[in-house]
C-alpha cells in the first residue's frame, strides 16, 4: 500500500527531527582552536574567576591561542583551578608567564590574557645575557600540566567599590 520510498523518506524526516532535538539539547559544538588540533594543558590557580566559562578563549595580545578546558575547585584550599588547553604551536612559554582574567568590552565575556613574560628562545643565543640579568641559571619552559603561578583574578565590581569605600572611610 505505502511504497517503500515513502516509508524511507518518512523515516528520514523523523530521524532528522530527533537529530535536531539532540543537537538543541546538547548544543554541542566542537570548538576546536583551528590550525593544528594538538594541544597541551597548563594550569593556573585564581582567587576568583568571575564569570569565566569552559571554552572561554585564551589570548596573547588579543590572538586566541587556546581555550579553557576545565574549571574545578581545589579541594584543599577551595581556590578555583583553571585548566588551559593551549595549541602546541605556542609551546614555549617560560615560567615567568603571567595570566590575568580580563573582560572584553563593558558587557563582554571574560577571557584569559596570557602575558608571556621573558621569552625563552629555542635557539638559545641570548640566553646567557638574560640569565645574567635575572641571576638565574636558566629559565624553565612550562610543560604539559605545569601551574602558572603569577595569576591575577577577575575584577569584581562589588569588591572594588567596597575597597574604595573602605579607603575613603580610613582617611
Amino acid at each position: 500500500m505505502v511504497s517503500r520510498k515513502i516509508e524511507i523518506l518518512v523515516g528520514f524526516f523523523v530521524s532528522l527531527g530527533i537529530l535536531a532535538l539532540i543537537m538543541l539539547a546538547l548544543n554541542v559544538a566542537n570548538a576546536g582552536i583551528g590550525a593544528n588540533g594538538e594541544t597541551y594543558i597548563l594550569k593556573a590557580k585564581f582567587e576568583n574567576i568571575g564569570s569565566l566559562k569552559i571554552r572561554s578563549p585564551i589570548k596573547v595580545g588579543g590572538v586566541v591561542v587556546g581555550r579553557v578546558a576545565k574549571i574545578a575547585l581545589d579541594k584543599n584550599d577551595y581556590l578555583p583551578v583553571v585548566d588551559m588547553e593551549i595549541s602546541t604551536d605556542y609551546s614555549h612559554f617560560s615560567e615567568t608567564t603571567a595570566v590575568n582574567i580580563l573582560t572584553s568590552g563593558i558587557l563582554g565575556e571574560q577571557y584569559l590574557g596570557l602575558n608571556p613574560g621573558v621569552l625563552v628562545n629555542n635557539a638559545g643565543t641570548d640566553d646567557d645575557e638574560l640569565n645574567d640579568l635575572f641571576g638565574q641559571e636558566e629559565l624553565k619552559l612550562l610543560a604539559d600540566g605545569d601551574f602558572i603561578t603569577d595569576t591575577k583574578s577577575a575584577l569584581v565590581l562589588e569588591e572594588l567599590i567596597g575597597q574604595f569605600l573602605f579607603n575613603q572611610g580610613g582617611e
Binding site: N27, A29, A31, K53, I54, R55, S56, P57, V64, R67, E109, Y111
Partner: peptide, 11 residues
C-alpha cells in the same frame, strides 16, 4: 568567537 558563541549559549 566560536567558543563564546556556543559556551554563552549553553550557559
Amino acid at each position: 568567537d566560536t567558543g563564546s558563541f556556543w559556551s554563552i549559549m549553553q550557559a
